[in-house]
Design a protein around this nucleic acid. Sequence first.
DNA 1: AAATTACATGAGACTCATTATCATTTGCAG
DNA 2: CTGCAAATGATAATGAGTCTCATGTAATTT
Lengths: 150, 150
Amino acid sequence: MQTQAEGSLKRVFRDNALKATPQRLDVLKLLMTSGEHLDAEEIYKRLLKKKKNVSRATIYRTLEVLVEYDFVRKLDFADGRMRYEQNQNPDEHHDHMVCQVCGKVFEFFNPQIEALQEAIAQEINFQMLSHTMHIYGICSACGDSADPVA
Amino acid sequence: MQTQAEGSLKRVFRDNALKATPQRLDVLKLLMTSGEHLDAEEIYKRLLKKKKNVSRATIYRTLEVLVEYDFVRKLDFADGRMRYEQNQNPDEHHDHMVCQVCGKVFEFFNPQIEALQEAIAQEINFQMLSHTMHIYGICSACGDSADPVA
DNA sequence: AAATTACATGAGACTCATTATCATTTGCAG
DNA sequence: CTGCAAATGATAATGAGTCTCATGTAATTT
Ligand SMILES: [Mn+2]
Ligand SMILES: [Mn+2]
Ligand SMILES: [Zn+2]
Ligand SMILES: [Zn+2]
């Protein structure tokens, strides 16, 4: 059985003289099924645990092409390493809240904010290509309990 | 002549058993007068050019304490190094648009967006401590001309 | 004004995420 | 099947930022 994304990857790659290697499929499948916001090292470790044959260098190179072809989004939560998440629907996007206690990531999308961003850019004739919005703080679980994350 | 910020720094530092060294004053003054969003290396090079006596390690350590005491804000434009800007008024803040062609940074503040962010966090009982919002794209100067930045 | 001392600095070693190099392997078109 | 461009793996290199430690100095105390 082959997932939708895998088929899409093979097609897109073939059309661009790129190879659909097992490593690329493995990385993509991991991000698709986990649904998490993972860093390169975590992806590497999880694939090793699954007895997948892959190197760190390939992880980085693979993530680069997956981002380039819009299969994956690269996120910067300002803690020294990049995170990656699946990008099922490149037309949509969402922003993130990050709990600084437990590290949990919450996603949100607010059309009003999106519209305001567009308007602000317009005002100075700035052509917006992308934007990031990260809210940092303490999630409800960590805020409620004196013993967070437990 | 001594600037407002320098006096404030001396006072705050004295109250916290920290020393108002020439290096700290130099870094702060540079950020205050330039008004730019500079990375550590750029600050280092500019101070060297001014014949100021300072090391890279001290630049990093100094920026750390200046951020800690709210004299400076640390920014992450997701290009591999942190930027620093003066933080004259810690009560206010602003967000940034970054031109991916010329690197120029534009500042903005939108109270509606701020309010919406608060509301979104509230919805899931997330205690917002800080947030970043960066708009990336092409500035009017770079967009208009075929020969940008020129 | 000199002594004291805790904090700060400078030089350079070190860490760690990410990138580059290059010999070897492999996907896949023909 | 074969040929070969593209991809991988091992590992060296890079670069931002941090750490160590001997030395220096701001600020306080005599
Ligand atoms: Mn997400
Ligand atoms: Mn700014
Ligand atoms: Zn939490
Ligand atoms: Zn520009």
